[in-house]
């Protein structure tokens, strides 16, 4: 067994950095898109909008019962077939790995965020709605300025925890042959045979990012505890 040689890592840094950038970008996009969509899914259920509420509930239940990797496969193989059948006389329309990854992660995260927000919505007391009503704020203004800011504040630690999981899950894009941090490392390792060094480096990067994010979760928890302590 050879001694560890981390100089190979230094040589691979630019490539690894590219991979990490993709992981971070995918996380950021899925976070924003998932949160927006998830908020919508939670709101139609909270407001009991006819039809939409049932659809949202079914969608969330469905997504949450399927492993992410299945959703990725499903999107990658099935959607081109369906799209082709609908728009291209039955000839498959490839969606492409990158688009698949962004869409799938956004749609997948939306289901998880929506459950967090749905529970958060229930934590806001009825008095807040009554005060907003009495002040003649519209339903839209009430949710935008009064209810949702409180919901995001209360749920921010859980949302961030979910986002850490999301960041780790982005490594699953290897099944689409995309080059995220793990993908970059494994490609380099295949070329130079330095599997251990490469994967130790990747593990260290995940460790640093996720533990710092967890610290932030702890800070947020403390802050929301103070804020709700009225």
């Amino acid at each position: 067994m050879n001694a560890l040689d981390f100089s190979v890592v230094v040589d691979a840094l630019p490539f690894l950095w590219k991979g990490l950038q993709f992981s971070l970008l995918l996380t950021a996009v899925a976070f924003v898109a998932g949160l927006v969509l998830g908020t919508g899914l939670a709101l139609v259920q909270h407001l009991q909008v006819p039809v939409l509420a049932q659809l949202a509930k079914g969608y969330v239940a469905l997504i949450r019962s399927i492993p992410l990797i299945m959703v990725l496969f499903w999107f990658f193989f099935l959607v081109p077939l369906i799209a082709g059948w609908m728009f291209n006389n039955g000839r498959p329309m490839p969606v492409g790995g990158v688009l698949t990854a962004f869409l799938t992660f956004s749609l997948f995260e939306a289901a998880y965020y929506s459950e967090i927000i749905r529970v958060g919505l229930r934590s806001v007391g009825k008095g807040q709605y009554e005060a907003a009503d009495a002040l003649s704020l519209s339903t839209l203004q009430t949710y935008r300025h009064i209810i949702l800011p409180q919901v995001f504040r209360v749920t921010s630690p859980i949302i961030l925890s979910q986002t850490i999981i999301l960041f780790q899950d982005t490594s699953l894009v290897y099944v689409l042959s995309l080059t995220d941090l793990v993908g970059a490392a494994s490609k380099v390792a295949q070329l130079n045979g330095r599997l251990v060094e490469m994967y130790l480096t990747v593990a260290a990067v995940y460790l640093v990012i996720c533990t710092s994010a967890s610290q932030l979760v702890a800070v947020l928890r403390k802050r929301t505890r103070i804020a709700t302590n009225r």
């Binding site: 008095g127 807040q128 005060a131 519209s138």
Partner: peptide, 24 residues
């Protein structure tokens, strides 16, 4: 005015007082 105040806890006192005049 409610028994339980129902102020908006995430807003300052000033914001509590300005939100409705501004938005409504």
């Amino acid at each position: 005015v409610f028994q339980s105040f129902n102020l908006f806890p995430h807003m300052t006192i000033l914001e509590n007082c300005t939100i409705a005049p501004r938005k409504s």
